[in-house]
Design a binder for these strands. Structure first.
Lengths: 235, 235
DNA sequence: TGTACATCAGTGAACGCGCGTTCACTGATGTAC
DNA sequence: TGTACATCAGTGAACGCGCGTTCACTGATGTAC
């Protein structure tokens, strides 16, 4: 079943038709009236809540409609299929997470060669802020899990990690120009990925939240400090 | 639909009936004849392969049967439902992973206060061996993803991580008796969890396999070295 | 070594259900004059 | 400021399909004497 851009649907992809019959994940219509925008948001919000209640496996379009007080065609007006809803939810959550890191980089990040404990604390606070964003979104943690679960949505996560890692790379490169480029790139990718993983672990284990966050921040800071101090020599 | 231990099925849980109507994840009959054992294994192997081909969402019992050359009731003779198959696959994979770490602890782990680079290399080799086990299992990486995806299977992963972390804790405690107990426990949990996450990341990005593995091993080793050197002072 | 019988292993065919999705339509909103 | 009309937004009802699961059964294997 390929996406049909019949009627006045905006065709988002050039119709090469050489591609495999992938189900599109893009939204269909941009709602133009206020009522429609409210419906669009209602669908997303309801999906987030239901995700937390029943999990991604048992989530169905019919269920979303019933809960939102809509009928099925209302969903299909804006989303080509149920994965597109998850895609939009994931995209927004990732964007919000990324924004936290970007702000941290610009404002609060403590240089690695200054006070060690201050650098750890700053990083820990940033990680906590990322979690705050996830928790603010209804069903936030379950959206993250859905991104793991659905292969079609892997790219959303990857794109986010790549974008964040690149920004961190640029920031560190500026302060430490003689660190081996390859290693610095790998290092920023690694900590970004593991930072995301760590946050999911913490969300699953809120009892250890403080200690885990502190230790993760310490681990990453130790690692980066070693890299910028000794990373120039190695190839 | 609650599990029915009718006929000669072995009742695995005491029938308190006060519990919520959870679908059981245990296997039903232990196959007693060779033919049956072969069928049991065939179901698991086929499921693993299909997992890699279609993903956990699109996996169905009917599909498994068709691919295995069986009929549906053959599956239901051994597994109460489709999640039980995934549970068994996950259990086995986790056990195999754990075994690699246990062997490493007993044989190859390099003490943290000896040569740093040797300790890093030893840890990197262990991480690579864990991945080897995953890759040896048909659909191995997809089994790991399924453990993320299906909430019912979360415990499988958690149990594995906890068991491994405890063993690492014991080993480190013996060599470094004055490190703060609480911190050491959190640290072992953290690295075990993040180690698992790192391996999944690497499985998703085989091009960076060597560099990522080396950097992860370095990060963990730096972290542990710092902990055993300075961890006694802090509370 | 053969036979009778109990148990184990798997088949053939179907079930009810809820899923994702669509059709033809009505009501709501915005716009031109 | 009112009306006619075009477009936007959402409804009511249903569709075919494949899912997980089960029933009553046949064939295969093991065991006792």
């Amino acid at each position: 079943m390929r996406p049909h851009s019949r009627r006045n649907g905006i065709p988002r992809t050039t119709p090469t038709d050489a591609e495999p019959p992938r189900t599109s994940l893009d939204t269909k219509l941009a709602p133009s009236q206020d009522r429609a925008r409210a419906t669009f948001e209602l669908i997303l919000e309801t999906t987030g809540k239901l995700l937390a209640e029943v999990g991604v496996d048992n989530l169905s379009t019919n269920m979303i409609c019933e809960r939102a007080g809509l009928t099925p065609p209302a969903i299909y007006r804006y989303f080509p299929n149920k994965y597109a809803i998850l895609h939009e939810l994931g995209r927004r959550l990732m964007a919000a997470e990324d924004e936290v890191v970007f702000e941290w980089l610009e404002r609060d990040a403590v240089p690695l060669d200054s006070d060690f404990e201050a650098a750890v604390a700053s990083r820990a606070a940033m990680l906590a802020n990322v979690r705050k964003v996830v928790r603010a979104q209804p069903g936030g943690a379950w959206i993250l899990r859905a991104l793991h679960a659905v292969p079609m949505l892997h790219d959303v996560r990857t794109a986010s990690v790549t974008a964040v890692a690149r920004r961190i790379f640029k920031a560190l490169r500026k302060d430490h120009p003689d660190v081996d480029t390859r290693r610095l790139k790998v290092a920023t990718m690694l900590t970004t990925w593991l930072g995301a993983a760590a946050n999911e672990i913490v969300l699953d284990n809120p009892r250890l939240e403080r200690q885990l966050t502190r230790e993760v921040a310490r681990m990453f800071t130790l690692y980066y400090r070693d890299l910028v101090e000794n990373g120039a020599e190695r190839t």
